[in-house]
């Protein structure tokens, strides 16, 4: 899933100084699961904004809403109509950047601001801790690396590692928090009895399937004319 972290409060407040009627919209999918953009965070941010603007002596109307996903039209439509019908001046989205974009494309003249910093595709490795696992490169290579991704999990994105900064299984970039993915790959291939695979160096990667190839789209022929 997509992981996102709350933006510093004052930054979000800063976006909203000039607006009177503000809608905070949460997302019931990824950012609910990573505890940064669900119903609870919507209430917390909205409450915080009311209090903070109140302290400045500026009473604003802060409205709340949380929808199932901000990246699907049918879910988003009621928000769009609400913005229209209630004359909302600005929207804060607590979805990942996808949701913010998706709404921005459809919001006409109403500004929208991100309430979160979207960080990565990751997994919940421990309660309250998420770690990056995939970078969405568009042509997956991990069949060769024991299912462990060096693109996302190597600080230097090395396709043939490790580098000299690997020490006792940790990555020199932040030894306390980052494991050397090439150590993990090595250990895993060893367990699989496939250490030999490491002798076949991975060729230089074609990054055109990643964002370097331009904005990407994905289609399903059974539903869409290609």
């Amino acid at each position: 899933m997509i992981v996102a972290d709350p933006k510093p409060f004052l930054q979000v407040k800063g976006y909203l100084e000039d607006f009177q009627k503000i809608l905070v919209v949460g997302c019931g999918t990824c950012t609910t699961v990573c505890l940064s953009g669900g119903e609870a965070e919507v209430q917390i941010l909205a409450s915080g904004l009311r209090i903070a603007f109140g302290k400045d002596g500026r009473k604003k109307t802060i409205l709340e809403e949380c929808i199932q996903r901000q990246c699907d039209l049918e879910f988003v439509e009621p928000v769009l109509s609400r913005v229209e019908s209630e004359n909302i001046d600005a929207v804060v989205s607590l979805a990942c950047g996808v949701g913010v974009n998706f709404l921005a494309d459809r919001l006409g003249k109403t500004p929208i601001f991100p309430g979160l910093d979207t960080t990565f595709y990751g997994a919940n490795v421990e309660q309250g801790l998420w770690a990056e696992m995939c970078a969405g490169c568009g042509s997956c290579i991990i069949a060769h690396t024991g299912g462990i991704c060096p693109v996302a999990r190597c600080s230097k994105h090395l396709l043939n590692g490790p580098c000299g900064g690997s020490e006792k299984g940790r990555c020199e970039v932040d030894p306390a928090n980052i494991e050397c993915v090439w150590q993990l790959i090595y250990d895993r291939l060893k367990r699989l009895g496939r250490l030999e695979d490491l002798r076949h160096l991975l060729p230089a990667k074609d990054w055109s399937t990643a964002s370097d190839g331009g904005v990407r789209r994905s289609t399903r022929e059974q539903l869409y004319d290609i």
Binding site: G28, T29, T32, V33, L35, G38, E39, C66, Q68, N124, Q127
Partner: peptide
Amino acid sequence: NHCAGCLTCVRI
């Protein structure tokens, strides 16, 4: 409908 299956309740 609001439950995202996040497992927080299970863990806590």
